[in-house]
Write a protein that binds this DNA or RNA. Structure first.
Lengths: 144, 144
DNA sequence: TAGCAATAGTTGCTATTACAACTATTTTTT
DNA sequence: AAAAAATAGTTGTAATAGCAACTATTGCTA
């Protein structure tokens, strides 16, 4: 690897891009009074897809610390979007799932999210998407 | 833009990769007792490069909120790595620069950072770097 | 030049993140 | 079966992030 890379701020660019996306999403949520944060949305999206999973699995799926998941779930429970159920098989486990209100929230916000994703990918091709995925995957696997 | 993109989790992949890098950096800093966080390092790096700048400029350079910069600088001042000077021209402005200890900290940590960047870019080419940069720049500019 | 707008920065508040320490369970070992 | 190890989750603490409200200063404008 040539030294150009070493001095170039790829970390910064990743960070800046992610912040831009996150802020854009949050401002849209706020201006439409969706009463939700970006990370709360990410959990809801995963709960909709997986129906009924544990904190641990949710943490793995979202690349979040289990601590963080636990606290975000707490907020979602307070908003009546999510409910917890202690497992009867293994009483250490807590299953989490969307309430009917949570499912409605998902269905309400989903179209907005699709629109915002389209906006981010404007002027980019399917190949660009593949390239980005490939490069990020290599970086991810490079790191111990 | 085809619907594949819209349903595919590019935000998640960016977020996961950045977290992986950040954690790797922090663990290295910690295990070598560098007594610094990743974001504190990013400010020090910019202060070394720009010598003497205001909070505002530092915020712009690092893509951070001026609130966040203000607080990180506060921590760095406590560690005697940075000093603040109110501008005589415009008494609203506060200039920030590294202390001699701050310059030493930069020189101490810099080689480690170069090594870690190399690790992240293993098995990737200069063209991959250009591609990543290009794609992230387009996404960034797509977002209002 | 007096009043208003804009700018630089700080403080308060809430959310996300990560680590350490802790409780409560379950599984493994001896 | 008792002790030890592993697993699932929560709580405490510190740092980063962003918004709103605030102070202080400077620039603009009527």
């Amino acid at each position: 690897m040539h030294d150009t890379f070493v001095s170039n701020p790829s970390f910064f660019k990743l960070d800046a891009t992610l912040k831009k996306i996150r802020n854009y999403w949050q401002k849209n949520f706020d201006s439409l009074n969706k009463d939700i944060t970006v990370d709360q949305w990410l959990l809801i999206e995963n709960l909709y897809k997986h129906k009924r999973i544990t904190h641990n699995e949710l943490a793995r799926l979202t690349s979040k610390d289990i601590t963080t998941v636990s606290r975000i779930i707490e907020l979602l429970v307070k908003k009546d979007l999510v409910e917890r159920q202690v497992s009867t098989d293994d009483r250490r486990k807590v299953y989490v799932q969307l309430t009917p209100a949570g499912v409605n929230k998902y269905k309400d916000i989903r179209p907005l999210v699709l629109e915002m994703r389209k906006t981010g990918w404007k002027n980019l091709s399917e190949q660009d998407y593949q390239e980005l995925t490939r490069i990020l995957d290599v970086i991810y696997s490079n790191i111990p």
